[in-house]
Amino acid sequence: MASSGSGYDLSSATFSPDGRIFQVEYATKAVENAGPVLGIKCSNGVVLGCAKPVNHKMVVATSGSYKRIHTCDTHIGCASTGFLPDARVLVQRVVEEAADWQDQYGSKIPPDVLGERLGSYVHYFTLHGALRPFGAAAVLAGYDPDTKECSLQMLEPNGAPYKYYGVATGKGKQAAKTELEKLNLHKNPIPVEEAVKQILKILFLLHQEQKDAKPIEVEVSWICEASGWTHQGVPKDLLKTAEEWAKQQLEEEEEDDEEDEEGMEE
């Protein structure tokens, strides 16, 4: 311990003198290095989306290879990012909590309760010296069949379960949050079809802004009337038209920007 303030980052069981737990902050950093995940709570459902980098030409990126969005119960979807094996542990826990609840009470677990339970689990890993916090974040989309309400929650490595109108995490989360805020979701919730388009647009935008970016695959899922209020992938044809729309929008915006610049030169 040469200088004061050092040595406090070795264990999540120790606070630093200014009241921080560095291990948890490092875990949050691990999340910021992995592909982006977005979620939007809509007027008629909830949508999840993520972009996964295809790291190698020979990787099979489609058809369930290194899946990032999981169905944890019929009414629960979980999009994860960060250190992927850690994320899978979170997903597994969500599956177990949902199944246990149904076994015990004969009804679907309310998404709020599920978020809180996952929060307690994640938090536990920030308490003990012998454990390492999760280097992953989970975005939970849920539908409650009893109240007929949808919910969107995110769990970060600190274990605090927050609910959101729109949420972004992973690489480029700041830019994504700015874009989400522009949609004014807390005042004017948008329908799911629109949210699919907007999520894709943001994902492609983040990808464009990245230098030497690897090609990406997108996964988008939703819970809405069209999916029978169950968590399902957005149908391929719908996804394709939304992708085209998103790319076209970005191109048009780019052209507008160029025109503006030319105008300024005159």
Partner: peptide, 12 residues
């Protein structure tokens, strides 16, 4: 849950 239980849950 912060809710009233359902008869279904009680029976289960």
């Amino acid at each position: 849950t912060g809710r009233q239980p359902t008869v279904k849950t009680a029976a289960h």
